[in-house]
Design a protein around this nucleic acid. Structure first.
Length: 474
RNA sequence: GGUCCCGUCGUCCAGAGGCCUAGGACGCCGGCCUUUCAAGCCGGAAACGCCGGUUCGAAUCCGGUCGGGACUGCCA
């Protein structure tokens, strides 16, 4: 039987990194086994689900480069792949389960159930221990699955090997709410069976729910899929990935200037590796090496710093013209306006030098604003550090004069001229060039100086040297 | 509280009884290169949670312990 896997996000927010990684592993497994990758919308939470979120999630999946063969928006033999369109089917299954005795109606009031829970807790038992099929059957209310108490529920998890639950520790959980809407457990399991999902790879948080899903599947007279419970993802603080401190949705990563290839590569490494040595690899290499059984068992901490490093690697490996093209919007954002054609040409000149020192796309913009806007304020630290030294004024004056007389305005010519000048003045190269850098770019950190001057233009360069010197004498 | 899962450098991953004086990557520290910052190159510090057992031999197997996490809803 060919592999059929799925990712089933709830459209109640943007695509979370945890979900994205689960999607990624499912996708890898499908592609590695010539299988089918399905995207389903688990939108049974009517209050929180929106079409906008759903569209956003799909867009994020595409952005990451995960294409799907069946499911929401691409269609397939199973309709819309939205659970909200299948309420009748779930109700039908629930009724069947009642008819076969596998489930029952329960209309006990909540306070009665709560009392039973507390009693069980007090006795050190599972809270649902006493919530079992009542003596007298009801004919309305919620529908609960009756957990057969005679045997443990055992299954083989691809990642965790054999997992076993005692029936006393599985509660008679609700499968159909009193308003006729299915719960997650029912809807998800019915879909997995109806869509003939062969492998369910999902977060480890669902491990305790797995016996429930297996029992529903059995009640339907179907075989259960093979399960693979992925280790959870945590934030750098060791806690669950938080929305406050970490970027947690894929759109945030995109907006922060991360490349999809880098995010893809990094996410692969959270719980899996090609061989323990290889860090940077392509999608094809990942597909060729991937197996669910190789996914590690322990939870992974999301390390933004490593992702950033990796993003830098991908940026440096990028075709220069592609980089330039990609980064222009960020430059315009930093400059605060659109660039005209001449400015774009100037940016392209210096772009390769910026590419080498960019980890996140927006940084590229910040590095070159000096080319397109006047220096409003010099970086205070830079100024204090390099401009307050002795002889700075002389160096700036001499440089302005030298450069004013330069017949050819190229980086090479500028370099030659300034080096000669500093040699004559007997000023060290580092010591002499730094003030010019601050004068021209506003900061002691910038792209290489000669190229920066070349792109800025002769007139502006000289003007800035003068401006800085004037400010110095005040 | 109960059930289940997990436990190798700060972090991620490798290691499936001898190849381990434990390997790779990020980060960190030092050096080189150098017009700054990056990048690059070289070097360094840094881990098998603990206790027993099995075995000639254990990071690898078993038990216990401690620690972390998930779940415990008419949320998903």
């Amino acid at each position: 039987m060919s592999v059929r896997v799925r990712i089933a996000p709830s459209p109640t927010g943007n695509l979370h990194v945890g979900t994205a990684r689960a999607a990624l592993f499912n996708w890898l497994y499908a592609r590695a086994n010539d299988g089918v990758f399905i995207v389903r919308s688990d939108d049974t939470d009517r209050d929180r689900s929106t079409a906008e979120y759903e569209a956003g999630i799909l867009e994020s999946l595409r952005w990451l480069g995960l294409d799907w063969d069946e499911g929401v928006s691409v269609g397939g033999p199973h309709g819309s792949y939205r659970q909200s369109d299948r309420y009748e089917r779930y109700r039908e299954v629930a009724e069947q389960l009642v008819a076969s005795g596998a489930a029952y109606y329960d209309q006990r009031p909540t306070d009665e159930l709560e009392a039973l829970r507390q009693k069980a807790q007090k006795e050190g038992k599972h809270p649902g221990y006493y919530i079992r099929r009542p003596e007298t059957e009801a004919d309305s209310g919620v529908i609960r699955l009756a957990i057969p108490q005679d045997a443990p529920i055992v299954f083989d998890d691809v990642i965790r090997r054999t997992v076993s639950f005692a029936p006393q520790d599985v509660d008679d959980f609700v499968i159909l709410r009193s308003d006729g809407i299915p719960t997650y457990h029912l809807a998800s399991t019915v879909d997995d069976i109806d869509y003939e999902i062969t492998h369910v790879a999902r977060g480890e948080d669902l491990l305790p729910s797995t016996p429930k899903h297996i029992l529903i599947a059995r009640g339907m007279g179907a075989g259960e899929p093979i399960y693979a419970h992925l280790p959870l993802l945590f934030g750098t603080d060791g806690k669950k990935l938080s929305k406050r401190h970490d970027a947690s949705s894929l759109t945030e990563f995109r907006d922060a200037g991360y490349l999809p290839d880098a995010v893809f590569n990094y996410l692969c490494l959270l719980g899996w590796s090609v061989d323990g040595e290889t860090t940077i690899f392509s999608r094809d290499e990942a597909v060729a090496a991937f197996d669910l059984a190789d996914v590690s068992k322990n939870p992974a901490t999301f390390d933004t710093e490593k992702l950033e490093w990796m993003n830098g690697e991908y940026i440096r490996a990028m075709d220069p013209s592609r980089f330039s093209e990609l980064v222009v919007p960020f430059v315009e954002e930093a400059v605060g306006r659109q660039l005209d054609e001449a400015e774009l040409a100037r940016f392209e000149e210096i772009s390769p030098l910026v590419q080498e020192r960019t980890k996140l796309l927006p940084e590229a913009g910040e590095q070159v604003t000096f080319l397109f806007t006047e220096i409003g304020e010099y970086d205070e630290k830079s100024w204090d550090k390099v401009m307050t030294k002795e002889g700075v004024s002389d160096v700036l004056a001499a440089a302005a004069e030298r450069l004013g007389g330069l017949p050819v305005w190229t980086a090479e010519a500028i370099e030659e001229s300034l080096r000669a000048m500093l040699a004559e003045m007997e000023v060290g190269v580092g010591k002499g060039l730094q003030p010019m850098r601050v004068a021209v770019t506003g900061s002691s950190v910038s792209p290489p100086l000669f190229e920066s001057m070349a792109v800025l233009g002769q007139e502006k360069t000289i003007a800035r040297l003068d401006t800085a010197r004037t400010r110095l004498t005040r």
